[in-house]
Amino acid sequence: MTDATVDDLAPEGVLRVALNTGNFLLVSGRDAEGRPEGVAPALGAALARRLGLPLQFVEYASPGELVDSAPARQWDVGFVGADPARTGVLAFTEPYVEIEATFLVPGESPARTCAELDASGVTISASSRSAYHLWLMANFSHAELRTAQGLEASFRRFADEKLDALAGLRTRLEHDAGRLPGARVLPGRFMAVQQAACTFRERGEGMRLLSDFIAQMKRGGELARIIESFGQRGKLLVAP
């Protein structure tokens, strides 16, 4: 690792790490000083230590906001779901974790599998521009997708409008099921959200450094230890 490679990834001399604070599995809390804690912040901190740089977190409430900010170059490394729709400006590492996405349905729903919900007349609520929303847009051709800004808003739309299903991450949906009598989470998954690190496509040397870092954290077991330390074992799966 050369100084030029570090400068390519973090040209301001500070590692600015973009976080999607709406992902409660990856950003799971705050420390006594109000700084974000969780798997993604811990990875950012480990990378900053490896580079010998100070660390600055740049927070966004949703993945869409994080991706939208890319042209302004307000950060150097982001942690967000990898999706082909996001690769115009950004380059992604291999995934570091996978999170199952499935559906919450009302108790009276006849649906037993995720695939059954891609049918004419079926209405599905989803958090706008989440990785699973992008996947549904590309892969569900019959159901009607109705979006809202953020997880809570998508749940409220599902409940208030009495829609047929709510798309989301399994852990969050299991929590939401307790808020709606009779509601149940479907078994299986319709996709796995692959969370990755990213930087800007023109930062080729920096991207190679970032990719090597993610691969080493996975291969050496450090990522699994971080997941365990934040109580996310079984909720976050180290990506193969």
Rank of each mutant, 00 (worst) to 15 (best):
V14E: 13
T113M: 03
A126L: 14
A165C: 13
D31L: 10
F92V: 10
S62K: 13
L51W: 06
A72H: 14
Q232R: 15
G38N: 10
S127T: 10
G204C: 02
C198V: 13
A148C: 10
V185G: 09
S154M: 10
A159C: 05
A40I: 04
A148K: 11
L169D: 01
R184N: 07
L163I: 01
F57Q: 07
T147I: 11
G107W: 04
A101K: 00
F213A: 01
A119P: 01
A45I: 01
G206H: 06
L19P: 00
Y96S: 03
D3P: 01
R219T: 14
A192W: 09
E12C: 12
G52P: 09
I214A: 02
L51R: 04
A143T: 12
F230M: 07
F200D: 00
M207C: 02
S62A: 15
A82I: 02
L151I: 11
A111Q: 06
T123F: 04
S69N: 13
L237W: 09
G44A: 15
R157V: 13
K162H: 15
R225M: 05
G220K: 09
S128N: 09
L166M: 11
I124F: 08
R189E: 08
P240R: 12
A167W: 00
G234A: 10
D7T: 14
G13W: 13
R35S: 11
C198S: 15
G150F: 02
A192R: 14
E161C: 12
I227G: 03
Q194M: 11
M217S: 09
E144Q: 14
P187I: 08
S211V: 02
D8W: 06
M137K: 14
R49G: 08
T199N: 03
A82H: 13
